[in-house]
Design a protein around this nucleic acid. Structure first.
Lengths: 240, 240
DNA sequence: GCTACCATACTGCCATACAAGTTATCAATC
DNA sequence: GATTGATAACTTGTATGGCAGTATGGTAGC
């Protein structure tokens, strides 16, 4: 059914982390679903250990929560984290775009146009495919701006955001989003930092504009009082 | 030498995570220092497995970086992450303080005063002790504001910030910081949200004001191009 | 003296086995 | 029928052994 296959030569735990993360985001593993180490291990025909390590990584991203001796379950979507991720993206990406607009030679406009063409091509097809194209577009911007490092940092938080996007796939105003992408590129091409930045902020603010409706439509998927991974309450150990 | 002792009845891996995190923050384990699973396991007289899992957690916090088949070493301090953490703290805490000032009954002023008294008591002693008191103060604010959940989320990022604070301990203008704390409490007590918020922002902006000097004074501790934990470059797996 | 090579001593990674705690099941008892 | 208690079937946690890949030191060959 799935085509995610383990490559025995590469580190298994990290592959599993990627696979499971994707399955959670695309809602193949849905919130509150219980997943056990042995169950997943059997599915991928590996031992329990790498699965366990993947769980630890996913737990630190807030995608699953492990209850000692009781089980592991997929976390609900943390609305607060989603808003934070969106906020962070806006801060980072608007900065990047401004940079690109200020130094015209830096951005490969032809490549950006190609990205937009691709988005239009898949707009009518599989929504997941569009999200991938969208992802590639934004990542390319970050790379051109020389901010690939920061981009990767944001990704961890972005996973929560992507889960929401998958949920809202059906009512996705895809063409509008593509037009907004085009507007960003146009701002860069014109060498107009203010315009490019404004277009980016506008775009990212609109992406989750329908978050409240999605939450009320799928209450079981969201959580208002999420439980963190472990105890970080005291960074510098108590002395008394 | 150390008093951090493993409690065999509680989950070992999580205890180790806490111990090692503290040792990194307090610079007992310094940047670029190589640490191996077996070495740490021997120190705490446990098996390698929980150590390994602690490493994974610390890696996802950016405190160590594991190089497959090569070794694990303490990460340098990521200046970008430090700034981000400070920024996030300002956003969260100024919001919390404003909330407390708006609803006067909410904050236990006596407890806050007690915190400040404690800070003055330890101001001249062990600098680490002051950081703990400071930490407790800010955490209490978050709890009173009912934002303990968000607070814990920020903690993960804050670890990087704390490392810097430990480095700058000697030249810490401790009394000034305490006065700023008092100003925040005064704002809350007066029921003046704007004043309380301003005091908070001013305080948090000053905490790392000497970051540049610290960086130039200890260049070996900081890194400009940190390497993330693992590959998060593609959230939704490539399809082409 | 310099380079290429090989043995050795590491490293992190994975599989397996065992331990300890939690939940579910079901039967005996009131 | 409702409650209680033992037991079995889970769960995650830990310990151990062996594996493959990497750095290191020394040595043979040039």
């Amino acid at each position: 059914m799935r085509q995610d296959q383990i490559d025995q030569t590469a580190p298994i735990a990290r592959q599993l982390t990627r696979f499971l993360r994707e399955r959670i985001i695309r809602n193949d593993l849905h919130p509150d679903q219980k997943i056990s180490e042995s169950e997943i291990a059997q599915q991928y025909d590996v031992s329990r250990q790498p699965v366990r390590e993947a769980f630890i990584r996913l737990a630190s991203e807030g995608l699953v929560s492990v209850l000692p001796q009781r089980g592991t379950r997929v976390s609900r979507i943390d609305v607060v984290a989603v808003r934070e991720a969106r906020f962070l993206r806006e801060a980072v990406e608007s900065d990047i775009v401004r940079l690109l607009a200020e130094a015209p030679g830096r951005a490969d406009l032809a490549e950006l146009d190609a990205h937009i063409d691709r988005q239009r091509a898949v707009a009518a097809g599989d929504p997941l495919e569009f999200i991938r194209a969208d992802e590639a577009f934004h990542r390319t911007l970050a790379e051109m701006g020389g901010k690939a490092g920061i981009w990767r940092k944001v990704q961890g938080l972005k996973a929560q955001m992507d889960r929401v996007r998958v949920l809202s796939l059906s009512q996705f105003p895809v063409n509008k989003l593509i037009d907004q992408h085009a507007a960003i590129v146009a701002g860069i091409a014109a060498g107009d930092p203010a315009r490019a930045e404004a277009a980016t902020r506008h775009h990212l603010r609109e992406v989750l504009s329908d978050l409240p409706q999605i939450v009320t439509a799928n209450p079981a998927f969201f959580d208002d009082a999420p439980d963190g991974d472990e105890d970080r309450t005291v960074i510098i150990g108590g002395g008394e």
